[in-house]
Simulated assay, not measured.
Amino acid sequence: MKRSLGICLLVFSALIGLGTAIRCYTCKDYTASCTKQDCSYENACLTLNERGGMTYRQCLKYSDCVYSRLGPMFPQASNFTFKCCDSDLCNSAPSSAASSLIGLLTSLAVMWWCVH
């Protein structure tokens, strides 16, 4: 029983991650072919969309995630929307939501298996 519980905790920890720093996608393009970057603990993942233009994804200090600070940082983007988030690879393209759901369902299945 103790061995089974230990294995379950190990697997669950590997699935959710224990680090305090996050990883973000980093790119500047129309196609969102991005790389993964390790960010510092004080960072968030930014997705900034120019209206009718580029999409920027990168690590950014969470305190800079306000419109008034982003404007001077991206002077080429005069009209934009943005989103900052604080979980691993949360600034991905919308199609990756399926992989996040799969990860969540896998975590729940492992926890259910460990309890029963």
Rank of each mutant, 00 (worst) to 15 (best):
4 S>M: 12
4 S>E: 13
5 L>D: 03
7 I>H: 13
8 C>L: 08
8 C>F: 10
9 L>C: 15
12 F>Y: 12
13 S>I: 10
14 A>I: 13
15 L>Q: 11
16 I>Q: 08
23 R>S: 14
23 R>Y: 11
24 C>T: 00
24 C>H: 02
27 C>F: 02
27 C>G: 04
28 K>S: 13
29 D>V: 02
30 Y>D: 12
30 Y>S: 13
30 Y>Q: 13
31 T>L: 09
32 A>W: 03
32 A>S: 12
35 T>R: 07
36 K>A: 12
38 D>I: 09
38 D>L: 13
41 Y>C: 12
41 Y>G: 14
43 N>I: 00
44 A>R: 04
45 C>T: 05
46 L>W: 01
49 N>K: 15
55 T>Q: 11
56 Y>T: 13
57 R>G: 02
58 Q>N: 14
58 Q>P: 02
60 L>G: 07
61 K>C: 06
61 K>S: 15
62 Y>K: 15
63 S>G: 06
64 D>Q: 13
65 C>P: 05
65 C>T: 06
67 Y>N: 14
69 R>Q: 04
70 L>T: 02
70 L>A: 06
71 G>M: 10
73 M>L: 15
73 M>N: 05
75 P>V: 01
75 P>S: 03
76 Q>H: 11
76 Q>L: 09
76 Q>D: 10
77 A>E: 08
77 A>Y: 03
78 S>M: 06
79 N>L: 09
81 T>L: 07
81 T>I: 10
83 K>P: 03
83 K>R: 15
85 C>N: 00
86 D>S: 14
87 S>N: 05
88 D>V: 01
89 L>E: 02
89 L>I: 06
90 C>V: 00
92 S>A: 15
94 P>N: 05
95 S>G: 03
95 S>V: 07
95 S>C: 05
98 A>R: 10
99 S>L: 10
99 S>W: 11
101 L>C: 00
103 G>F: 08
108 L>N: 01
108 L>A: 04
115 V>D: 09
